[in-house]
Structures are given as structure tokens and as C-alpha cells.
Simulated assay, not measured.
Amino acid sequence: MDKVPMTVQGHKALSAEFEHRTSNERRRIIDAIAEARAHGDLSENAEYSAAKEQQSLNEGRIKELETLLALADIIDVTKLSGDKVKFGATVTYIDEDTEEEKTYQVVGDPEADASAGRISISSPIARAMIGKEEGDSFEVAAPGGSRSYEIVKIRYI
């Protein structure tokens, strides 16, 4: 399998989630299953079924986190610099049609969260920005037609 690029902060967040799920959530779910079992007949026990489903979902996420953490290629963005957009860059750009300004950091897939200002390196907008410099324009194909943007600022923080 390929390495999964991620920032130091993204790795810390995934590690914290893994720790929480293995330490706290597992114990809580096991306790919920035990309590539901104590109520008797398991065939008609909704609490038992719900707890077992929670356990399945939690264990699935734990396996996913184990894989991501094992394949992590941790990149310290504070040690990066340059005048071109690459992984870890915080980019401010303007929509050339609406003059709306947005700022996003280009991060790995597991830590992407557009509402928190982090977009995946594999997203269409990030792929279009990679290699560009301040003042460069780039286009992104969108469902409503192609959109044009201009890069205003590139930082590595």
C-alpha cells in the first residue's frame, strides 16, 4: 500500500481518536452489552442489538485508524517553504467571478475538513493549485461549469 501523507497535527488527531476509541469507547460499549444481556432474552432486546452495532462500528473505525497510522507519512509543514503550492501550503485565493476570498490548507485525505479550512490534496481544487505561485490563475471544473480562481497568498505555517 502507498504511504498516506498527513501533517503532524493530523497525525496527532488520528492518534488521539485511536486512543479514545480503544481505551474509552471499547469499555463503554462492553459495559452496555453486559447491561443489555442482563435484561434477558437477546432475540428481542433492542438495547443489546444497538450496543452490538456500536461495537461493530467502533471496531471498524479502530481498524481503519490502525491502517492510516501505520501508513502515515508525517510531514512537518513548519519545515516547508517555497513560493509554489504543495502539500501543507495554506493558500488564499479569490474567485475571479464573485471576488470571494477563501483560505485553505492542503492536507492529506484523512484529515481533510473543508469547514475547518483543510482540503484534501486529492480534491479537484487542490490538484488544480499544486505547482502554482502567487498571482497565478487556475481553473476547476465544477458541476455548474468551470470556475476560475487567482492565488493571492501562499504560506507554510
Rank of each mutant, 00 (worst) to 15 (best):
E134G: 00
Y104K: 08
D83Q: 09
K63T: 13
K84L: 08
T22Y: 02
T78H: 07
E19D: 13
H11C: 09
G60N: 15
E64K: 12
A112F: 08
I29F: 02
F87V: 05
V8I: 15
R26W: 03
E100Y: 07
I75F: 08
S49T: 09
K86S: 10
E139L: 14
K86A: 07
E35V: 11
P5K: 12
E134H: 01
D83Y: 02
P110G: 06
P110C: 10
V106Y: 00
D76V: 12
A89G: 03
K84F: 08
R147C: 04
S120N: 03
K153F: 00
P5S: 06
Q9T: 13
Q54V: 12
S122K: 15
K52G: 01
T90G: 02
V152I: 14
L57Q: 14
A46D: 14
S123V: 02
G131Q: 10
A141Y: 15
G82N: 09
P124E: 11
Q105M: 10
V85F: 07
E35T: 11
D83G: 10
S81R: 11
L14M: 15
D2I: 04
L71E: 05
A126V: 01
G131A: 13
K3M: 08
K84W: 01
M129L: 07
S137Q: 14
V107Q: 02
V106N: 01
V91M: 05
Q105L: 01
A112S: 06
E35A: 12
N58D: 09
H39P: 00
N45S: 05
K102H: 14
V4R: 03
Q54C: 15
K86C: 02
L65V: 09
E47P: 00
A32T: 02
D31F: 00
K52F: 05
F138Y: 12
P5T: 06
I75D: 05
K86I: 00
R26T: 14
I62G: 08
E66M: 08
R118P: 01
D113I: 09
A70H: 11
R28G: 05
S122Y: 07
